[in-house]
Amino acid sequence: MRYFLTALGVIFGITVFLFLDYALPSKQTVRITNTYNRLTEVGANAIFFAAPDTGTVQSASDRRDVLFIDTVRPNGKVYVYRNEDTGWVWPPYFKYTSMDLQGRATDLRSTREAPRWVSVTSYGWRVPWLSIYPNAISVRPVEGPDVRPFNWGATVSLAVIGLLLALILRMWNQFRERMLEPAARSAQQRRQVARGRAGRWIDRLFGRKDG
């Protein structure tokens, strides 16, 4: 039983970690090479794309017009972002200026010979075999490929989540202290009175120490 609960706890922890890793913003310093839009098939991987009502045209059943931003990391590897408006509810980024972001990204394009490095804030995963892309939230130019601005968004979000968890823990402890323990104590007392001396003798016989 204990192993089962431990395993369940571990799975829960991993799930929470993956969930946060997807939804929290992350920053990367890259060089933008191209920006375009393309009709993309969004089928089984639809949960990793924006909801269909966020404003892009859906021509056939599951093909959608998606904005992309091609970038190259300092180590030479390519990294492709998508640029979509988020829905109203999840993830809570309330992004509705993806066209402006696309314009800004186009303005910051550069070549390998004359690179212009930018820091892109995004959320999500790049998994090529699932055809999913992280959603770029904002770009801002930085001085060089080694400049890595501090990730305020994720830090503040985690701090707030931590505070909320601490608050919930305190509320639970207070509830337990004021409501559950006195009730348990009085229930125990009533049980002791009801069983009387014979009950206590039976308890001793069978090895139970408390009433």
Partner: peptide, 18 residues
């Protein structure tokens, strides 16, 4: 819709109701 898809234009506004 088909026309804009062929032309590659992205259309990002939609009815106010939605």
């Amino acid at each position: 819709r088909k026309g804009s898809a062929i032309a590659g234009i992205t259309y990002t506004s939609e009815p106010l109701g939605v």
